[in-house]
């Protein structure tokens, strides 16, 4: 008898479904005109961001409220080096810079847990924001115009590819020994240590890895807005939105962030232009509702319907 740590037989459908779904949406977005191109771009951006967040926070239970810092660092690197080095290089470099930053701060930041970790990550992102704001204004560059950015369609291909990659990473890590180790950390960190999970190493790696794709997305979205402004790319609302989507969709499962992003963007597209106030009211209500009644999000609700509750002794 063998114990399947990675069940490869069920991987293929999930991978194909992700890729086919992404290609379909990209195709629809491009053929149906610029409005839908933007909708598709936003959808993939949020999937990529939330999926990456889930890779660390969903799996370990350490809730990061500062993931925008990776996005901002990536955007900053791409904006500063714009026209100096080509985008195909600067965008991955932006991801790398975000990952390196996370790696460096991981050791001190990951010493605290629970609400302290939440507050610390939030504070850290704000700190970086104001340091860069100070630097930029000192050099007389409160914002940078980025002329000659690629077309939205081109950006869409990049972002869609990153969303697919992020989804597959979350999916495969969840099934790997690395992912099982992270799940043990989420369940009980001390117990994880006693059974020999290299807790610190795993947390640091996951934290750094979860910053790379958001860094690249940040760079791409700076291209999309065609100008760079520190306050915009380090906007804490981005962090909040990521966490909201993860809560509504359900973290710790690669399908959760997709559902969360679809749900929130769907709601936004329906209400944004007609009743923006209603949108925020509903969003608040949904968030409260999910936290209270469906803490595992939409994916948790689906799973609960699929399999009846296990027998209780």
């Amino acid at each position: 008898m063998t114990i399947p740590f990675i069940s490869t037989n069920s991987s293929l459908p999930a991978v194909s479904a992700t890729v086919i779904g992404a290609v379909l949406i990209v195709g629809l977005g491009v053929t149906m005109g610029s409005y839908w191109t933007v909708v598709a771009l936003n959808l993939f951006m949020w999937i990529a961001l939330t999926q990456s967040w889930s890779l660390f926070s969903g799996m370990t239970g350490y809730i990061s409220l500062g993931h925008v810092v990776a996005y901002g660092i990536g955007a900053y690197l791409v904006a500063v080096t714009f026209k100096m080095i080509p985008l195909w290089l600067s965008i991955p470099l932006g991801g790398l810079a975000a990952g390196l930053f996370a790696l460096i701060v991981a050791i001190p930041v990951l010493r605290v847990r629970g609400p302290y970790f939440v507050i610390l990550t939030f504070g850290l992102a704000e700190l970086v924001k104001y340091i860069l704001l100070y630097t930029e204004t000192t050099f007389g560059k409160s914002s940078r115009l980025l002329f000659g950015a690629p077309k939205t369609e081109v950006l869409l291909y990049w972002v869609a590819a990153l969303a697919v990659i992020a989804t597959l990473i979350t999916y495969f890590v969840g099934r790997s020994r690395f992912g099982k180790g992270l799940a043990a950390v989420r369940e009980d960190e001390t117990a994880a240590e006693t059974i020999g999970v290299p807790v610190t190493r795993l947390k640091v790696l996951a934290f750094a890895a979860s910053a790379v794709i958001p860094g690249m997305i940040g760079g791409l979205m700076a291209m999309r807005s065609t100008y760079f402004d520190v306050l915009q790319v380090f906007n804490p609302t981005i962090s909040f939105s990521i966490v909201t989507m993860a809560i509504i969709g359900g973290a710790g499962d690669a399908r959760g962030p997709i559902l969360g992003a679809l749900f929130m963007l769907g709601l936004a597209e329906l209400l944004w232009s007609t009743a923006p106030q209603l949108y925020f009211i509903l969003l608040g209500l949904f968030l409260i509702g999910f936290v209270l009644f469906a803490p595992n999000g939409l994916i948790g609700l689906i799973k609960r319907r699929k399999q009846p509750k296990g027998s209780v002794s």
């Binding site: 114990i3 740590f5 099982k180 180790g181 799940a183 043990a184 369940e187 009980d188 001390t190 117990a191 240590e193 006693t194 059974i195 020999g196 999970v197 290299p198 807790v199």
Partner: peptide
């Protein structure tokens, strides 16, 4: 601790600290 476990020194902690949201099988394999 993980180096100690790799060498064969293993603690069964006070208060058990099992993984409540994992199955018995998952608890064991991990």
């Amino acid at each position: 601790s993980h180096d100690l476990v790799a060498r064969g020194v293993v603690l069964v902690p006070e208060g058990r600290l099992i993984f409540s949201d994992m199955t018995v099988f998952e608890n064991l394999t991990i």
